[in-house]
Amino acid sequence: MDVIVENISKSFNKGKVKALNDVSFAVKKGELFGIIGPDGAGKTTLFRILTTLLLADDGTASVNGSDVIEDYKAIRNKVGYMPGKFSLYQDLTVEENLTFFASIFKTTVEENYKLIEDIYVQLEPFKNRRAGKLSGGMKQKLALCCALIHRPEVLFLDEPTTGVDAVSRKEFWEMLKRLKKEGITILVSTPYMDEANLCERIALIQKGEILSIDTPVGITEQYPDQLYAIKSDNMSMLLKDLRKSVNVKSAYSFGEYHHIAFSENFGDNPLQTNLLEANNHTNFKMMPITATVEDCFIHLMTKPEVDEN
């Protein structure tokens, strides 16, 4: 195991805000591991503890065989960290930033150029532009190059795709797949549930607690009910009608369709089609589907032991 987290807890404001509560998991060498959860789930706090920038209140953690407290200096030399907030020097050029980060890790751009070549060629035309003047997608690529230039053993990427459009997001994940082939262990956090499928294993995290850890397929297979996708011409009315139906256990919008699950004893007319007919739903369509990671996240969030509201 390359990253081991055991019973880590961290609170802020004299215990008022519990950022992480008894979190444990382990990541294998060379694995692409996703931490999936909304803002405020504790993702950044977790990354800051693992990159030795923050001390946990309780628990232990190690990265690439080094303890985050005892051997923090060793860890700093062998991890790459791309924070969620753009943290390069805005008034240095693209090339200057890269050279700077290489030199603090006592290496050169040339020595590890092969690792970043794919990404850097896209930046090369702008190498004399100040980092602060780059577009969002370009900043993200430069930040990744700077986090990689010392060829880290473990790479921490904190929400690298937040606020980034769908095309750039796809490209970014392609880059991660290539880096994985180099044997680098990658921990990446994201609030986008659809990105979960691009990871080998994922941890779903909410309010400082891990809801589930497994492969994306493993997570979706644990969804307890048969799920259906359903649509008609009036989607918002349909959702209201479904929620009125006693046999419907859950109903949520998922783009073009609503996803619904029925409670157990639903008899012959699970949908209470009379209810739907009463409201004149037209072009009604329903089909069985397999759950997505987002369905599972919603399910885990609404389980009684997690629900606080």
Binding site: P38, D39, T162, G163, S253
Partner: peptide, 20 residues
């Protein structure tokens, strides 16, 4: 302007109920 970025899946949907 991107009102639901980073919001959890349930709240994101409640937000859309308010939009409707």
């Amino acid at each position: 302007d991107e009102p639901t970025g980073g919001v959890d899946p349930i709240t994101r949907r409640q937000f859309w109920d308010m939009i409707y």
